[in-house]
Design a protein around this nucleic acid. Sequence first.
DNA 1: ATATTTGGTTTATAATGTAAACTAGTTTAC
DNA 2: GTAAACTAGTTTACATTATAAACCAAATAT
Lengths: 93, 93
Amino acid sequence: MAKLNSILHQELRLSIISFLANVEWVDFKKLVEVTEASKGNLSVQITKLQKVGYLEVRKSFKGNYPLTECCITEEGKTALETYVSELKKLLNL
Amino acid sequence: MAKLNSILHQELRLSIISFLANVEWVDFKKLVEVTEASKGNLSVQITKLQKVGYLEVRKSFKGNYPLTECCITEEGKTALETYVSELKKLLNL
DNA sequence: ATATTTGGTTTATAATGTAAACTAGTTTAC
DNA sequence: GTAAACTAGTTTACATTATAAACCAAATAT
């Protein structure tokens, strides 16, 4: 089989990575907005993507509130490209 | 979220459907060959695809041996097309 | 003061995936 | 003719994954 990257072959994680592929640092709130996912799920999936090195997460404070921001890594970009190309192969696109 | 069809958003099921999309009736053996999946997994996923109406399964005998053949349904074709277009949207393709 | 909101994390449960074991019979080799 | 190996799958038990609900600490609004 093609063996699609199983980390990326999940809708929310794919949404996150694929959104981050085209932008700079994005905060948690923005990701909730664009993915329309629950905060819990988003938190879990961001952590998963970070653990495998597909995105960098930095935590700070904006005013008084905690602020979590994410940015795709080079490894993440490469993995996404590979995933997309494997998927295209599988779908004959 | 895009809400990808969760039945199709699985590698083996996607392989099966996407292979069947371009051919006529195909037997189990051929599917083992092209998907390189285990027979157990293939059996489970074919049944799942059949249950939701994405493919038709007919069982007969070829010589003395049981023969299981699959064919994509119109519903399956439509679902695949929708899935692919949603996926493209998600990936900005 | 206390209720609500912000910005998340943790956890318990449900859903899914898969390999291994099994069924039921057939063919081959001894 | 019978034991071993093969065909063509199915079932089951376990492991992984996904997700919503509950929770937390601090801030702000009433």
